[in-house]
Amino acid sequence: MSTVTLSLEVELGWGVHDIDEYERISEDRQCESRYLRRLLSHCDDVDIPFSFDVVGHLFHAACSGEHRSPHEDGWFDEDPGTDWQTDPLFYAPDLVADIRDAETDHEICTHSYSHVSCDEASDEAIRWDLEEAQQVHEHVLGERTVSFVPPKHEQPPTHVLRDAGIEIIRMHRSDGVSKPRKYKRLVTGPHPEFSPPVTIEDDVVVTYCTEYPSLTSALLPSGRRDTHPAFKYLPFDTAKRQQLHRRYLRQTAEQALETDTPVHLWAHLYDLSNEAQFLALRDFLTDLAALEAQTDLEVLTMAELNDRVRAERRAHVVV
């Protein structure tokens, strides 16, 4: 199964509301909005779909800020209780609409309702959070989602997932390499191979990815943040760094084709939202579209990957 899945986390203020790192996001999310729209436009040009993992609260145009939830006291303290024009880091119905209305058939899956911590929250709180997310999906999009990217890749209980109608999740895996080897891998590749790259655990499909964002490059500034000090002083200019990342991504897609296995690449919207990162990804998407047109490689959303994995399992059982 030679497939590539691309997912992008759209979390904005909810991704940092419990760690107070708002400096990751541009003022009034102007950059994130602009680069998402540029990404959607290019995806339309090359017909490449993404799974957009959107925090459920961002679907709202406004809210009171009051949430009767089983979360710990204070969990929703950062919710301003206003509207998307006043506090666009916490409400983003315009971005949801942009994704939904794009020509390309993107998937909008959930990143939970409030960026819930599955390691710290109770099963009851996780269940509540997923149900709230499903309700806004149903209200805005007309259907619930089967796909979930747990915040920080913290493992949720599978029985809670099944109760919420979730059929596929994305989780990271450590490749267990030494720090020097990991450093080299981030500079020149190759992307790690996971065996197996997809599993089914208690009737929930799990698609695996790297611990670090792979659609963006550690060699380039991440959104508003400068390049990491470990890579900042390498003797490469921006164009060379973009070229290295484009090559890393293309080789990853070719690896999926050669090994006949699924690969999942991902990033955060706020890390992608600068010119250096965007141009490298844009050029890779053009390469990926050409590979898909010329070979047996397929670009699948998480929901499509879920259908494919389950269909293959049924065919195997029948045989």
Rank of each mutant, 00 (worst) to 15 (best):
E66F: 03
A164T: 09
D237E: 15
D18I: 01
D77C: 08
G142N: 13
A97E: 15
L234Y: 01
H42M: 08
A253V: 10
Q255L: 13
V206W: 04
T145P: 07
S114E: 07
C43G: 06
E131Q: 13
D175Y: 06
L186K: 07
Q155W: 09
S222G: 05
T216W: 03
L215C: 03
S64H: 09
H172D: 13
T158Y: 12
H264R: 02
T5W: 01
P221A: 08
H228L: 13
V16I: 12
L8G: 06
D87L: 00
H106D: 05
A102M: 10
D77Q: 12
H60P: 07
H106C: 07
E32P: 03
V149L: 07
S26I: 06
P49V: 10
R282H: 13
A218L: 02
E107M: 02
A133P: 10
A125R: 07
F236L: 14
A121V: 07
S26G: 11
Y233M: 04
Q135K: 15
P157V: 12
L288Y: 04
M1H: 13
H67A: 10
L89T: 13
S64I: 08
P88N: 11
I200T: 12
K179I: 14
L39Y: 01
D94E: 15
D44L: 09
H159P: 09
R29L: 02
I48W: 03
D123C: 07
S174V: 00
A280E: 03
V299T: 15
L291S: 03
S122T: 15
L89F: 05
H268Q: 05
G223L: 10
L186V: 06
T5M: 04
N306E: 15
W266C: 03
V299F: 02
L234K: 02
P49H: 13
R181L: 10
I168M: 04
F76R: 00
T104P: 00
H159M: 00
R127H: 14
D18P: 02
Q251F: 03
P49E: 04
P150V: 11
E21K: 12
L279Y: 10
S178F: 02
A267D: 12
P80Q: 09
Y212Q: 13
E258Q: 14
Y35V: 03
H191E: 15
W84I: 00
H245D: 07
L285R: 07
D47R: 11
F59I: 04
S178E: 01
R24M: 08
T301M: 02
Y183I: 05
R246L: 01
F59D: 13
W266R: 01
T5I: 02
V317H: 15
V10N: 08
E292F: 00
I108E: 05
A102E: 01
